[in-house]
Amino acid sequence: MTTQQQPMPADTGTTQAGRTSPDPRSDGTVITGRSPARMAWRRIRRDKVTLAAFVITVLFILIALLAPVLTAITGWGPIAPDGKAIDPDTGNFPRGALGGVSLTHLLGVEPGTGYDLFARIVYGLRTSLFVGFASAVLSTVVGVVAGLAAGYSGGWVDSVLSRVMDVMLAFPQLLFIIALTPVIQNAMQTNSHGGTDENLRLLVLVLNIAVFAWAYTARLVRGQVLSLREREFVDAARIMSAGRWHILFRQLLPNLWAPVLISFALAVPQNITTEAALSYLGVGVIPPNPDWGALLSDASQFFLQDPMYLFVPGVLLLMLVLALNLLGDGVRDALDPRAARG
Rank of each mutant, 00 (worst) to 15 (best):
G143P: 02
P259Q: 00
S153T: 11
T2C: 13
G75K: 05
D23T: 15
L252Y: 06
A294L: 12
A64T: 12
P24I: 10
R229P: 05
V131Y: 03
R43S: 06
F130E: 00
L207E: 10
L51V: 13
G155K: 12
S227H: 08
G100P: 02
M165D: 12
V141N: 07
R34P: 11
L326R: 02
S139H: 01
T57A: 04
T217E: 10
L106G: 10
K48N: 12
Q301G: 13
D116L: 05
R126W: 01
L318N: 05
L278G: 07
H193V: 13
L169I: 05
S35T: 15
D47I: 00
I177D: 11
T90V: 04
E110Y: 09
S300R: 15
A170Y: 08
V30Y: 01
S135V: 00
L317N: 02
I184D: 11
P68W: 09
D27K: 12
E110F: 09
T57R: 08
I86Y: 03
R25H: 12
L281R: 07
L326M: 08
G114M: 06
A52G: 15
Y123D: 02
G147N: 10
R231I: 07
D82H: 01
L327R: 04
V285R: 06
L66E: 11
P81E: 07
R25E: 14
D11N: 03
K48V: 15
D166R: 02
W214V: 08
R46F: 05
T113H: 08
N208E: 13
R238Q: 07
Q270W: 04
L327N: 01
W41G: 05
A40W: 03
A170I: 07
T217Y: 07
N191Y: 11
V49H: 05
S102I: 03
Q185Y: 06
A37L: 15
L278A: 11
G108H: 11
Q305N: 04
V204H: 06
R338G: 03
D47W: 06
A265V: 04
N92T: 14
L202C: 01
A37N: 09
E230A: 15
R219Y: 11
Q6A: 14
A170P: 07
L98P: 05
V312R: 02
S128R: 00
D87E: 07
G151T: 09
R46E: 11
P111G: 10
F233P: 04
T104E: 10
Q301M: 13
A146W: 01
S153H: 08
V131A: 00
G132C: 05
L180K: 09
M188K: 03
P288M: 13
L296E: 00
D197P: 02
K84C: 01
Q173Y: 14
S300D: 13
G143H: 05
V69H: 01
L335T: 05
P337G: 12
I262P: 14
P22H: 04
G147Y: 10
V167F: 11
R250Q: 15
F171W: 13
I86G: 06
S159F: 12
R244A: 14
